[in-house]
Design a protein around this nucleic acid. Structure first.
Lengths: 244, 244
DNA sequence: CGAGATGTTGAGCTGACTCAACGGGAGTGG
DNA sequence: CCACTCCCGTTGAGTCAGCTCAACATCTCG
């Protein structure tokens, strides 16, 4: 499984070895994006689709008054800008969190591929719908839950997503975020993030450090967050695979 | 323009009279949904796509503790459940706000149509991406703006969307919502909604009553909300039309 | 025409914010 | 390799937007 995109989509639909090969070949044109650099800025009209291969990125918007909202996290296997096939311009920006590696895939290559491999097209569609479902759940999270539960919920989600692409073992996975970025995600202040993190640590639920998060008791955290993973639509199959 | 879907999509792509006719014919199987009735419930696996023809509906989720979050408003021309082509089950519910009229379109009919009319397929895709963009902006709204600005922003958005499908003239349009529903949308209490509404009224910005909203000074309200309509991606053309 | 749903008002409470200061660690340049 | 610096995390204290609880008014619709 060289390609995280294959890993992600394989859990949704069977791919022939040929499909998988087509996916792998997308990743020839690779580039590294340094921590904090914008991959895409609001108003851009990118000519390629960027596929995140390694590291994290986020979608975000800046507000006129200097506030910032992080709209989504992108992890390996995620497409950064599937919007370019339809929209004139990007309506938000995308930034690398930690150093990241992306593949730049020309628009036309994706169009050709989806035409040739219908399973792939469905896979992309599924991926877009999952992103949308996550966005809806974030809205619920920010609008309805208190800051502690909110953060717990986010951690559960990221754990599941990372596990789904094979990047979480036990409760531990990379979480290359500052407390300020967590704050901009959850709609609270960095100071409050700090206090809630300490509370979770004190309760023995998590450990944080060196850009990694360890959840000591996943069930307990899910309980605390009233986390119901159905919105991630991952249940369709547990083991990623490529058809023999 | 008998069909609000045509009205919506026509502003995005040119349709031949034939395309438009195909769209109109979708609406043969029509049904009325009474105020407060669920069109679709979480967990359902609908076999038809529902197109809202008249009235409003909302997407929403209930939480275990009895809270509720409204995720989106659907207005005439919107598709309720494009997810069914990919997902096993609905991950949220959809409810009529006021009495509404919908067309039930069999899955297969939509698939056939999009295959035959590529402009239509692109139109649906565009519509899905706009819904996603709106969802992102709601996240920004709830996470970053205070309750007054938040409500002002929502009103600006709904005014633009209603105008886009020809249902707002001047600043007046149907807004079939209770204060409680506004509260569940904005993530504040009904009591606080009431107070913010009064403030807007006192400032001469709006009038509300009989399920209608009038914005007396659209520019002023947009200013107050720091409303930037670009996320709605409606700018592509101002006048809906069907190619001659 | 009656009753439950919706809207309005007041008063006190609290989760999260602001402001301010300090400590520690990671990267950088000399 | 060390010193410096800047970013990041931590802590404390006072404040406030929005909440809760409670009561009452009004509307809508069956």
């Amino acid at each position: 499984m060289t390609n995280p995109l294959t890993a992600k989509l394989a859990s949704f639909a069977d791919f022939t070895p040929e499909d998988a090969k087509a996916l792998d070949q997308l990743c020839r044109d690779t580039k590294t994006v340094r921590n904090g650099r914008d991959l895409i800025r609001i108003g851009d009209r990118p000519e390629q689709v960027f596929l995140l291969l390694d590291g994290w990125a986020c979608r975000y918007k800046d507000l006129p008054d200097g506030k910032r909202q992080i709209l989504a996290y992108l992890i390996p296997g995620d497409l950064c800008d599937p919007h370019i096939f339809i929209f004139e311009e990007m309506d938000h920006s995308i930034r690398a969190l930690g150093d990241a590696r992306v593949a730049a895939i020309p628009k036309q290559v994706v169009l050709d591929l989806t035409e040739r491999y219908p399973a792939l097209a469905r896979g992309f569609w599924w991926s877009a719908l999952v992103d949308e479902a996550i966005s809806r759940e974030w809205l619920v999270n920010v609008a309805q839950r208190d800051s502690y539960t909110r953060m717990a919920h986010l951690f559960c989600e990221m754990w599941m997503r990372m596990r789904h692409v094979g990047l979480a073992h036990d409760g531990t996975f990379a979480l290359p975020l500052t407390q300020e970025q967590l704050a901009d995600t959850l709609g609270i202040t960095p100071i409050h993030v700090n206090r809630m993190l300490q509370r979770m640590r004190a309760e023995g639920l998590i450990s944080v450090g060196r850009r990694r998060l360890t959840i000591h008791d996943v069930d307990a955290l899910q309980e605390a967050a009233a986390f119901d993973p159905r919105y991630l639509h991952l249940e369709q199959r547990t083991e990623p695979r490529v058809a023999a």
